[in-house]
Computed example of a mutant assay.
Amino acid sequence: MMNTTATPTRRTQAVAAELDQARKSGPLQTIIIPPCPDLLARMRAALQEADPDLNVIAQIASSDVAMAASLLKAANSAAYSSGTPVQTVGQAMNRLGLEKTAMVMTSFLTQRAIRVNSPHLQRFWQRAGKRAVAMQFMASKLPGMSPDMAHTYGLFCHVGMPVMLQSVRGYSGTLMEAAARIDRPFITTENANHRTDHAVVGALVARLWKLAPEVMVAIRRHHDLDMIGHEDTEPDVHTLVAAGLVAEHLMRRHEALEADVDWLANKQRALDWLHIDEDELEVWDEELRPLLDATL
Rank of each mutant, 00 (worst) to 15 (best):
N76K: 04
T189R: 01
A69Q: 12
V215D: 07
R95A: 13
L109N: 06
R184C: 14
T152D: 05
M227Y: 08
C157E: 10
M145W: 03
A199S: 15
S107V: 01
W263M: 09
D262K: 05
R207V: 00
D232K: 05
V116I: 07
A102T: 05
A212D: 14
P27T: 08
V168N: 00
E18Q: 10
L288S: 11
L109D: 03
K130R: 14
H254Y: 14
G129F: 06
H120G: 09
R123G: 07
A206H: 06
E231Y: 06
S77F: 08
N191E: 12
R11Q: 11
L296C: 07
Q268C: 05
E258M: 10
S81N: 09
T189L: 07
P85G: 00
G129A: 09
Y153N: 07
V201I: 13
T152R: 06
L274T: 05
Q166H: 12
E177Q: 13
E287R: 10
L98N: 03
R115I: 12
A113Q: 01
L96N: 06
S146T: 11
T110H: 02
V86M: 07
L264R: 11
L28M: 10
S82N: 09
E231K: 04
A206P: 05
A68V: 03
G160F: 08
L204I: 02
L71R: 04
L47G: 14
E49A: 14
D279C: 07
T295W: 01
M161F: 09
P143S: 12
K130T: 04
S167I: 08
C157P: 00
P8C: 01
L208P: 02
M67W: 02
N55H: 10
D272Y: 01
N55Q: 12
D51W: 02
Q126G: 08
L109P: 06
G129Q: 07
A178H: 04
Q122V: 14
A203P: 04
L19C: 12
V215K: 02
E282S: 10
V65C: 13
T233D: 12
A134N: 02
L292V: 10
Y153I: 09
R42Y: 07
Q122D: 11
M145H: 03
A14H: 06
E99V: 12
P143L: 07
T30G: 03
P147S: 04
G154D: 05
A92L: 05
T196D: 07
T196S: 15
A199I: 04
H194D: 04
A75G: 10
R112F: 00
G244D: 04
K130L: 10
N193I: 03
R220L: 01
M105C: 15
A242G: 02
P52E: 06
L39E: 07
G154M: 08
L288G: 11
I114S: 06
V215W: 04
G129R: 09
D53Q: 09
W125A: 10
A218D: 02
K24T: 13
H198Y: 15
S25E: 12
M145F: 13
D183A: 05
M105W: 04
T239D: 00
P37G: 08
P37M: 09
H249E: 13
D236I: 07
S146A: 14
R10M: 13
A50L: 08
W273I: 05
V200L: 11
T106S: 12
V65S: 15
K210G: 03
H238F: 11
M164D: 01
C36F: 01
D232A: 13
N193T: 05
D226P: 00
A6M: 05
S107F: 07
V215H: 03
V200N: 00
E255K: 09
